[in-house]
Amino acid sequence: MIEQINNPVVEVHDLMVSYGQNPVLWNIDLTLPAGNLIGILGPNGAGKSTLIKAIMGLVEANSGYSKIFDQDLNHVRNRVSYVPQRESVDWDFPASALDIVMMGTYHHLGLFKRPGKKEKELAMDCLQKVNMKAFAKRQISELSGGQQQRVFIARALAQQADIYFMDEPFAGVDMSTEKALVSLFQEMTATGKTVIVVHHDIYSAGKYFNWLIMLNMHLIASGPTEKVLTEDLLTKTYGGKLSMLTDIGELIKKSDFNPLKN
């Protein structure tokens, strides 16, 4: 079930990516609508991070291409934001939460210019939005995993982009923070921004996202949540993971889990 749309904000065409001899993504062909909160689902190692990295030009594609706002990424970098997985950096780095969020303003500054008062105010606003203003001066090594994650999201907000790619932004954050972040993302999409989130919990995915991508090396599904969150597609996506399968079966039996209902 792969739904293609007109005037997409993101277009991925025949994308194939491999690390050395190992292909990780095969023939990914998808288009994404603007103003949506979009989830990427798939088991560990499905290539979710790789898909985002390929779109962001961080890994080289063997074939195919991707376009954002119908343009090459290089022409629209200022409108695109990327939040890597939290573990991808060393949080022992000597910097405060505010320092890190200020990095989100760097691309507007250009070479040799230093961030000033305006950038600092913006960064503080962004910390406020993720409820981290009180920790602005705190060294990042002294923050909890969930707080570090929120600093990363604040840095992305400081980029003032139109499209956001976030790799597991809810990893390590508690339930109430996760809910707060989801409403923040929903506010953003309500103003026309597009937020694409790698998510590992299929149960909450139905509630959070209005568009879902299901990935397991191949693209299994891409479409409106109510159309693609089906047992059949979830089984295809999480195929080999038996325990996962039984979980889904049981949940559906208990009818606690009805993707069509909110």
């Binding site: 990295k53 962001m56 030009g57 970098r77």
Partner: peptide
């Protein structure tokens, strides 16, 4: 600073 802390992020902003 930025490329030391987060090389991938630095690359995505065109550095």
């Amino acid at each position: 600073k930025i490329s030391t802390f987060d090389k991938e992020f630095a690359a995505t902003i065109g550095l």
